[in-house]
Design a protein around this nucleic acid. Sequence first.
RNA 1: CGGGGCGUAGCUCAGCCUGGUAGAGCACAGCGUUUGGGACGCUGGGGCCGGAGGUUCGAAUCCUCUCGCCCCGACCA
Length: 434
Amino acid sequence: MRLSRSFVPTLKETPAEAQIASHRLMLRAGLVRQTSAGIYAWLPAGWRVLQKIAQIVREEQDAAGAQEILMPTIQPAELWRQSGRYDAYGPEMLRIVDRHDREMLYGPTNEEMITEIFRQSVRSYRELPQNLYHIQWKFRDEVRPRFGVMRGREFLMKDAYSFAIDYPSAVLEYRKMMLAYMRTFQRMGLKAIPMQAEAGPIGGNLSHEFIIVAPTGESQVYYDAAFERIDPASGDFSFDSPADLNRFFSLLTTPYAATDEKHDPALWRNVAEKREGRGIEVGHIFYFGTKYSEPMGLVVAGPDGRPVHPFMGSYGIGVSRLVGAIIEASHDEAGIIWPESVAPWKAVLLNLKMGDARCDALCEEVYAGLGAEALYDDREERAGVKFADADLLGHPWQIIVGPRGAAAGTVELKRRATGERAELSVADALARIG
RNA sequence: CGGGGCGUAGCUCAGCCUGGUAGAGCACAGCGUUUGGGACGCUGGGGCCGGAGGUUCGAAUCCUCUCGCCCCGACCA
């Protein structure tokens, strides 16, 4: 993509409303623009990041055996009356009336809807277990939205819903999601820690929050340093092996980890390597049994022919929140430092002297070699502006082409994360980026 | 929802107390000089001073109401 023809409106000054680093940087780097309190439009660079995060989530959900669907944002109130949550949910739910005076709502979550869909079509235990997910916009009318996309009212969320014929089978679904989540966050360069959590309005009694430790987190968290050494990708854990899933689960739930609501000073005293700090919740998984299947009349025939209410769980990942969380975990004074897996562009090409025949030619050569994952800064701007924007946007790699090197046929390759620089031939630079 | 604050140019803000023809820096357009870390000079364009009502000869400024946004707290993916 050529920056001269792109809509990437960067800001030199910090917008007054942004308090924390990720919010400030998302506005300054031209990722998003606020349209109302807690509601954001995603601009090209931000949208690319959001889609990359969603894609990683999707791949890991698929790997865990979940199937992608897409449910609507607008739901009938009637469904929520069946579960009893229409009145229980309170003013956080955005309620709408259509032209026929039918009560509707903008979905804050989808347990009722998926239960209804499942109820229409599933009759036998032979069809279980199943796990269905979608990646869809949600709306929760927060009293006080803040921190940009980290605590917006409208947000993109992956939510999955599992159905099982009995408790042991339901627990396996839960553990699959735990493994999938740990791999998902790891691929985004994040160290997530599952912590015991309150089930909240979703309901249920088995629940973990996935927490990223960062100074701007919303809650105080306590955990054992053992978590810093766990690598979910290693150890050959298979989704198909109950033994693996159970082993993984105990590996992740044995060391102490708790948010302040669940913190137990008595247990904490026995933790050898204590770590505490602030945490950002990026995912939450729940097991809640028959909380919805029973009131909503979801029934399948069990092996003995008798009716059974399936045992359910739900599993959320805050996709849009992750954009903010990743930035909170990875930035410096100059700007964002994207992990390669979610960067809007893998590399930026800086032409320091537009109009110089050698620079222009060399840049075209490099640009052609980089492919679609590159942004070419071909604006008529001074070098300093390009450097500043490149650091702000946080591209993992910067390829700097100036008159000095161009004369010798070399380019400068800079790694954003470390600041390392090297003078290389075009071929070597391209090879290094990979 | 309680408490506090702010709405003036695209952005960051001054002006308001003490009413008298709307400002600065950055950004934008043109010209010139510059040119490897957010250049400099000159010229220019851009405002229903959030909105409505009121007081006054006269309101960005004073009063009332309203809408929006931000911060602290309580609440939450």
